[in-house]
Protein backbone atom coordinates (compact mmCIF):
# COMPACT_ATOMS: atom_id res chain seq x y z
CA UNK A 1 0.00 0.00 0.00
CA UNK A 2 2.94 2.31 0.72
CA UNK A 3 3.88 1.86 -2.89
CA UNK A 4 0.52 3.19 -4.01
CA UNK A 5 1.11 6.20 -1.80
CA UNK A 6 4.51 6.66 -3.40
CA UNK A 7 2.98 6.49 -6.86
CA UNK A 8 0.21 8.87 -5.85
CA UNK A 9 2.79 11.40 -4.67
CA UNK A 10 4.67 11.01 -7.92
CA UNK A 11 1.46 11.48 -9.87
CA UNK A 12 0.76 14.69 -7.97
CA UNK A 13 4.31 15.79 -8.80
CA UNK A 14 3.65 15.06 -12.47
CA UNK A 15 0.49 17.14 -12.51
CA UNK A 16 2.34 19.99 -10.85
CA UNK A 17 5.11 19.80 -13.43
CA UNK A 18 2.56 19.86 -16.23
CA UNK A 19 0.80 22.83 -14.69
CA UNK A 20 4.12 24.66 -14.38
CA UNK A 21 4.94 23.81 -17.97
CA UNK A 22 1.65 25.23 -19.16
CA UNK A 23 2.43 28.52 -17.40
CA UNK A 24 5.94 28.67 -18.83
CA UNK A 25 4.71 27.92 -22.32
CA UNK A 26 1.91 30.42 -22.05
CA UNK A 27 4.32 33.10 -20.96
CA UNK A 28 6.71 32.32 -23.81
CA UNK A 29 3.99 32.25 -26.44
CA UNK A 30 1.56 34.94 -25.31
CA UNK A 31 3.42 37.37 -23.12
CA UNK A 32 6.97 37.55 -24.43
CA UNK A 33 6.37 38.28 -28.11
CA UNK A 34 4.04 41.23 -27.53
CA UNK A 35 1.48 40.66 -30.22
CA UNK A 36 1.23 37.03 -31.40
CA UNK A 37 -1.22 37.91 -34.15
CA UNK A 38 1.10 40.52 -35.65
CA UNK A 39 3.94 38.02 -35.32
CA UNK A 40 2.05 35.29 -37.12
CA UNK A 41 0.84 37.50 -39.93
CA UNK A 42 4.09 39.33 -40.48
CA UNK A 43 4.79 43.05 -40.85
CA UNK A 44 2.89 43.47 -44.14
CA UNK A 45 -0.54 42.45 -42.78
CA UNK A 46 -3.16 45.18 -42.46
CA UNK A 47 -4.47 46.40 -39.13
CA UNK A 48 -7.87 44.79 -39.85
CA UNK A 49 -6.32 41.40 -40.53
CA UNK A 50 -4.43 41.59 -37.25
CA UNK A 51 -7.54 42.63 -35.37
CA UNK A 52 -9.45 39.76 -36.95
CA UNK A 53 -6.90 37.20 -35.86
CA UNK A 54 -6.76 38.73 -32.40
CA UNK A 55 -10.50 38.34 -32.13
CA UNK A 56 -10.34 34.75 -33.39
CA UNK A 57 -7.58 33.73 -30.95
CA UNK A 58 -9.12 35.59 -28.05
CA UNK A 59 -6.07 37.82 -27.79
CA UNK A 60 -8.18 40.82 -26.82
CA UNK A 61 -9.26 39.13 -23.60
CA UNK A 62 -7.42 39.77 -20.33
CA UNK A 63 -4.36 37.54 -19.89
CA UNK A 64 -5.82 35.38 -17.13
CA UNK A 65 -8.83 34.57 -19.32
CA UNK A 66 -6.54 33.71 -22.20
CA UNK A 67 -4.64 31.39 -19.89
CA UNK A 68 -7.87 29.81 -18.68
CA UNK A 69 -8.86 29.15 -22.28
CA UNK A 70 -5.44 27.69 -23.02
CA UNK A 71 -5.48 25.35 -20.01
CA UNK A 72 -9.11 24.43 -20.65
CA UNK A 73 -8.08 23.38 -24.13
CA UNK A 74 -5.12 21.40 -22.77
CA UNK A 75 -7.36 19.62 -20.28
CA UNK A 76 -9.60 18.50 -23.14
CA UNK A 77 -6.47 17.47 -25.03
CA UNK A 78 -7.05 20.31 -27.48
CA UNK A 79 -3.96 22.15 -28.66
CA UNK A 80 -5.68 24.56 -31.01
CA UNK A 81 -5.25 25.36 -34.68
CA UNK A 82 -1.97 25.71 -36.41
CA UNK A 83 -1.84 29.32 -37.61
CA UNK A 84 -0.14 28.35 -40.82
CA UNK A 85 -1.42 24.96 -41.92
CA UNK A 86 -4.89 25.76 -40.58
CA UNK A 87 -5.04 22.16 -39.44
CA UNK A 88 -5.49 21.21 -35.81
CA UNK A 89 -2.19 20.86 -33.97
CA UNK A 90 -3.53 17.66 -32.42
CA UNK A 91 -3.74 16.02 -35.80
CA UNK A 92 -0.28 17.19 -36.81
CA UNK A 93 1.24 15.87 -33.60
CA UNK A 94 -0.70 12.64 -33.76
CA UNK A 95 0.75 11.92 -37.18
CA UNK A 96 4.31 12.88 -36.30
CA UNK A 97 4.68 11.72 -32.70
CA UNK A 98 4.77 7.94 -33.31
CA UNK A 99 7.92 8.22 -35.40
CA UNK A 100 9.59 10.17 -32.57
CA UNK A 101 8.36 7.64 -30.03
CA UNK A 102 9.77 4.80 -32.12
CA UNK A 103 13.13 6.55 -32.35
CA UNK A 104 13.27 7.30 -28.64
CA UNK A 105 12.22 3.78 -27.63
CA UNK A 106 14.89 2.26 -29.86
CA UNK A 107 17.41 4.72 -28.43
CA UNK A 108 16.66 3.84 -24.82
CA UNK A 109 16.73 0.14 -25.72
CA UNK A 110 20.16 0.42 -27.36
CA UNK A 111 21.50 2.60 -24.54
CA UNK A 112 20.61 -0.01 -21.90
CA UNK A 113 21.45 -3.03 -24.05
CA UNK A 114 25.07 -1.89 -24.33
CA UNK A 115 25.39 0.60 -21.46
CA UNK A 116 24.58 -1.84 -18.66
CA UNK A 117 26.99 -4.61 -19.75
CA UNK A 118 29.70 -1.97 -20.28
CA UNK A 119 29.11 -0.67 -16.76
CA UNK A 120 29.15 -4.19 -15.32
CA UNK A 121 32.38 -5.00 -17.13
CA UNK A 122 33.99 -1.77 -15.92
CA UNK A 123 33.01 -2.54 -12.32
CA UNK A 124 34.11 -6.18 -12.62
CA UNK A 125 37.56 -5.16 -13.86
CA UNK A 126 37.84 -1.92 -11.93
CA UNK A 127 41.01 0.08 -12.65
CA UNK A 128 42.05 -2.40 -15.31
CA UNK A 129 41.86 -1.80 -19.06
CA UNK A 130 38.13 -2.55 -19.57
CA UNK A 131 37.33 0.02 -16.90
CA UNK A 132 39.57 2.68 -18.42
CA UNK A 133 38.11 2.02 -21.85
CA UNK A 134 34.51 2.33 -20.64
CA UNK A 135 35.25 5.50 -18.69
CA UNK A 136 36.98 7.07 -21.69
CA UNK A 137 34.02 6.11 -23.86
CA UNK A 138 31.55 7.62 -21.40
CA UNK A 139 33.38 10.95 -21.33
CA UNK A 140 33.83 11.20 -25.08
CA UNK A 141 30.21 10.18 -25.70
CA UNK A 142 29.04 12.83 -23.26
CA UNK A 143 30.96 15.66 -24.92
CA UNK A 144 30.34 14.68 -28.55
CA UNK A 145 27.66 17.01 -29.88
CA UNK A 146 24.70 14.86 -30.94
CA UNK A 147 24.60 16.47 -34.36
CA UNK A 148 28.28 15.69 -34.85
CA UNK A 149 27.81 12.00 -33.98
CA UNK A 150 24.82 11.89 -36.31
CA UNK A 151 26.77 13.41 -39.18
CA UNK A 152 29.77 11.14 -38.63
CA UNK A 153 27.59 8.02 -38.55
CA UNK A 154 25.70 9.17 -41.60
CA UNK A 155 28.86 9.74 -43.59
CA UNK A 156 30.61 6.63 -42.37
CA UNK A 157 27.85 4.03 -42.53
CA UNK A 158 25.83 5.66 -45.27
CA UNK A 159 28.20 7.15 -47.80
CA UNK A 160 31.59 5.57 -47.20
CA UNK A 161 30.63 2.00 -46.32
CA UNK A 162 27.17 2.22 -47.87
CA UNK A 163 25.73 -0.39 -45.53
CA UNK A 164 22.77 1.46 -44.07
CA UNK A 165 20.18 3.93 -45.36
CA UNK A 166 20.68 7.46 -44.09
CA UNK A 167 17.36 9.21 -44.54
CA UNK A 168 13.72 8.63 -43.74
CA UNK A 169 11.86 5.77 -42.17
CA UNK A 170 11.39 3.57 -45.25
CA UNK A 171 12.75 3.44 -48.81
CA UNK A 172 10.97 6.01 -51.00
CA UNK A 173 8.00 4.53 -52.77
CA UNK A 174 7.28 1.91 -50.11
CA UNK A 175 3.57 1.70 -49.57
CA UNK A 176 2.77 1.06 -45.97
CA UNK A 177 0.45 2.87 -43.64
CA UNK A 178 1.07 2.38 -39.94
CA UNK A 179 -2.33 2.53 -38.29
CA UNK A 180 -2.63 -0.02 -35.53
CA UNK A 181 -0.22 1.24 -32.89
CA UNK A 182 1.27 3.98 -35.03
CA UNK A 183 4.72 2.47 -34.52
CA UNK A 184 5.98 1.45 -37.93
CA UNK A 185 8.01 -1.60 -36.96
CA UNK A 186 5.36 -2.93 -34.60
CA UNK A 187 2.60 -2.46 -37.16
CA UNK A 188 4.64 -4.08 -39.90
CA UNK A 189 5.24 -7.08 -37.66
CA UNK A 190 1.58 -7.23 -36.64
CA UNK A 191 0.41 -7.23 -40.26
CA UNK A 192 3.07 -9.80 -41.08
CA UNK A 193 4.85 -7.54 -43.54
CA UNK A 194 8.36 -8.72 -42.69
CA UNK A 195 9.95 -6.88 -45.58
CA UNK A 196 8.70 -3.53 -44.37
CA UNK A 197 9.62 -4.39 -40.78
CA UNK A 198 13.16 -5.24 -41.86
CA UNK A 199 13.52 -2.07 -43.90
CA UNK A 200 12.11 0.01 -41.05
CA UNK A 201 14.65 -1.46 -38.64
CA UNK A 202 17.49 -0.79 -41.06
CA UNK A 203 16.40 2.83 -41.33
CA UNK A 204 15.98 3.17 -37.58
CA UNK A 205 19.43 1.85 -36.69
CA UNK A 206 21.62 4.85 -37.51
CA UNK A 207 19.47 7.61 -35.99
CA UNK A 208 18.84 5.56 -32.86
CA UNK A 209 22.53 4.76 -32.50
CA UNK A 210 23.48 8.41 -32.96
CA UNK A 211 20.99 9.50 -30.32
CA UNK A 212 21.85 6.72 -27.88
CA UNK A 213 25.64 7.10 -27.56
CA UNK A 214 25.56 9.89 -24.95
CA UNK A 215 22.88 8.12 -22.90
CA UNK A 216 24.75 4.83 -23.26
CA UNK A 217 27.84 6.45 -21.78
CA UNK A 218 25.80 7.84 -18.87
CA UNK A 219 24.14 4.48 -18.21
CA UNK A 220 27.53 2.74 -18.30
CA UNK A 221 29.04 5.29 -15.92
CA UNK A 222 26.21 5.14 -13.41
CA UNK A 223 25.95 1.34 -13.61
CA UNK A 224 29.67 1.09 -12.92
CA UNK A 225 29.52 3.38 -9.88
CA UNK A 226 26.45 1.63 -8.54
CA UNK A 227 27.90 -1.86 -9.07
CA UNK A 228 31.07 -0.90 -7.22
CA UNK A 229 28.98 0.51 -4.41
CA UNK A 230 26.97 -2.70 -4.08
CA UNK A 231 30.04 -4.93 -4.38
CA UNK A 232 31.24 -3.56 -1.04
CA UNK A 233 28.07 -4.69 0.75
CA UNK A 234 28.19 -7.53 3.26
CA UNK A 235 25.64 -9.59 1.35
CA UNK A 236 27.99 -9.89 -1.61
CA UNK A 237 30.74 -11.18 0.70
CA UNK A 238 28.19 -13.55 2.24
CA UNK A 239 27.20 -14.92 -1.17
CA UNK A 240 30.89 -15.52 -1.85
CA UNK A 241 31.34 -17.31 1.45
CA UNK A 242 28.49 -19.63 0.55
CA UNK A 243 30.04 -20.50 -2.77
CA UNK A 244 27.62 -18.72 -5.11
CA UNK A 245 29.52 -18.59 -8.42
CA UNK A 246 30.99 -15.31 -9.74
CA UNK A 247 28.62 -15.04 -12.68
CA UNK A 248 25.48 -15.48 -10.57
CA UNK A 249 26.80 -13.13 -7.94
CA UNK A 250 27.57 -10.45 -10.48
CA UNK A 251 24.26 -10.49 -12.31
CA UNK A 252 21.75 -11.69 -9.75
CA UNK A 253 23.12 -10.47 -6.44
CA UNK A 254 24.89 -7.31 -7.57
CA UNK A 255 23.24 -5.98 -10.70
CA UNK A 256 19.65 -6.05 -9.51
CA UNK A 257 20.18 -3.89 -6.41
CA UNK A 258 22.54 -1.73 -8.49
CA UNK A 259 19.96 -1.15 -11.21
CA UNK A 260 17.92 1.62 -9.60
CA UNK A 261 20.39 4.51 -10.13
CA UNK A 262 20.74 3.93 -13.90
CA UNK A 263 16.96 3.82 -14.21
CA UNK A 264 16.54 7.02 -12.23
CA UNK A 265 19.23 8.78 -14.24
CA UNK A 266 17.43 7.73 -17.39
CA UNK A 267 14.38 9.63 -16.20
CA UNK A 268 16.37 12.78 -15.51
CA UNK A 269 18.29 12.54 -18.76
CA UNK A 270 15.13 12.08 -20.72
CA UNK A 271 14.59 15.78 -21.31
CA UNK A 272 17.96 16.16 -22.98
CA UNK A 273 17.24 13.01 -24.97
CA UNK A 274 14.15 14.68 -26.44
CA UNK A 275 16.27 17.73 -27.23
CA UNK A 276 18.79 15.49 -28.99
CA UNK A 277 16.00 13.83 -30.95
CA UNK A 278 15.23 17.23 -32.53
CA UNK A 279 18.70 17.38 -34.02
CA UNK A 280 18.90 13.74 -35.04
CA UNK A 281 15.51 13.79 -36.75
CA UNK A 282 16.50 16.79 -38.79
CA UNK A 283 19.76 15.20 -39.95
CA UNK A 284 18.22 11.86 -40.86
CA UNK A 285 15.03 13.39 -42.33
CA UNK A 286 13.09 11.41 -39.76
CA UNK A 287 9.38 12.21 -40.13
CA UNK A 288 8.83 12.85 -36.40
CA UNK A 289 7.52 15.55 -34.13
CA UNK A 290 10.87 17.33 -33.98
CA UNK A 291 10.97 18.07 -37.68
CA UNK A 292 7.45 19.42 -37.32
CA UNK A 293 8.49 21.45 -34.30
CA UNK A 294 11.50 22.98 -36.05
CA UNK A 295 9.32 23.99 -38.96
CA UNK A 296 6.80 25.52 -36.56
CA UNK A 297 9.59 27.41 -34.84
CA UNK A 298 11.15 28.83 -38.00
CA UNK A 299 7.72 29.88 -39.25
CA UNK A 300 6.64 31.26 -35.88
CA UNK A 301 3.56 29.05 -35.69
CA UNK A 302 2.75 29.73 -32.04
CA UNK A 303 0.08 27.11 -31.36
CA UNK A 304 2.20 24.44 -32.97
CA UNK A 305 5.22 25.47 -30.89
CA UNK A 306 3.16 25.39 -27.70
CA UNK A 307 1.78 22.00 -28.67
CA UNK A 308 5.18 20.49 -29.37
CA UNK A 309 6.74 21.80 -26.16
CA UNK A 310 3.74 20.66 -24.12
CA UNK A 311 3.78 17.18 -25.63
CA UNK A 312 7.53 16.94 -24.98
CA UNK A 313 6.88 17.79 -21.35
CA UNK A 314 4.05 15.29 -21.14
CA UNK A 315 6.30 12.65 -22.66
CA UNK A 316 8.96 13.41 -20.01
CA UNK A 317 6.42 13.17 -17.20
CA UNK A 318 4.94 9.88 -18.45
CA UNK A 319 8.37 8.30 -18.83
CA UNK A 320 9.26 9.30 -15.30
CA UNK A 321 6.07 7.81 -13.92
CA UNK A 322 6.81 4.61 -15.78
CA UNK A 323 10.31 4.61 -14.31
CA UNK A 324 8.86 5.02 -10.82
CA UNK A 325 6.81 1.87 -11.34
CA UNK A 326 9.84 0.03 -12.74
CA UNK A 327 12.01 1.14 -9.85
CA UNK A 328 9.46 -0.27 -7.41
CA UNK A 329 9.49 -3.50 -9.37
CA UNK A 330 13.29 -3.78 -9.30
CA UNK A 331 13.77 -2.84 -5.65
CA UNK A 332 11.25 -4.19 -3.13
CA UNK A 333 12.51 -1.74 -0.51
CA UNK A 334 10.95 1.09 -2.48
CA UNK A 335 7.79 -0.93 -2.95
CA UNK A 336 7.53 -1.72 0.76
CA UNK A 337 8.68 1.54 2.33
CA UNK A 338 7.03 3.70 -0.29
CA UNK A 339 10.04 5.96 -0.85
CA UNK A 340 13.44 5.93 -2.41
CA UNK A 341 16.35 4.96 -0.24
Amino acid sequence: MEFLGFLARRLAWSLLVLFGLSVVIFVIARVVPGDPARMALGPRASAEQVADLQEKLGLNLPLYQQYARFVGGLARGELGQSLLTERSVNLDIRTTFPATLELVLATVFIAFLFGVPLGVAAARWKDRWPDNLVRAFAIVAAVMPTFFIALLLQVLAGYVLQILPTTGQLPTGTEFEANITGLLIVDALLTGDLNVAFEAMRHLLLPALALSLATMGQVARITRASMIDVSRQDYIEAARAFGVPDRVRLFKYQLRPAFVPPLTIMGLEFASLIGGAFVVELIFSWPGMAAYGIRAITQKDLNAIMGVVMVSGLFFVMVNLLIDVLVGFVDPRIRIRGRRA
Binding site: V17, G20, L21, I28, A271, T298, V308
Partner: peptide, 21 residues
Protein backbone atom coordinates in the same frame (compact mmCIF):
# COMPACT_ATOMS: atom_id res chain seq x y z
CA UNK B 1 8.95 22.73 -7.34
CA UNK B 2 10.26 25.32 -9.80
CA UNK B 3 13.35 23.19 -10.33
CA UNK B 4 11.13 20.16 -10.91
CA UNK B 5 9.34 21.99 -13.67
CA UNK B 6 12.59 23.14 -15.26
CA UNK B 7 13.79 19.55 -15.25
CA UNK B 8 11.00 18.56 -17.63
CA UNK B 9 11.99 21.14 -20.23
CA UNK B 10 14.84 20.26 -22.58
CA UNK B 11 17.11 23.36 -22.60
CA UNK B 12 17.53 23.00 -26.35
CA UNK B 13 13.79 23.08 -27.03
CA UNK B 14 13.31 25.95 -24.59
CA UNK B 15 16.01 27.92 -26.38
CA UNK B 16 14.42 27.06 -29.72
CA UNK B 17 11.02 28.29 -28.57
CA UNK B 18 12.44 31.53 -27.21
CA UNK B 19 14.45 32.01 -30.38
CA UNK B 20 11.23 31.56 -32.33
CA UNK B 21 9.11 34.12 -30.50
Amino acid sequence: RLTDIALALPPLIMALAVAAV
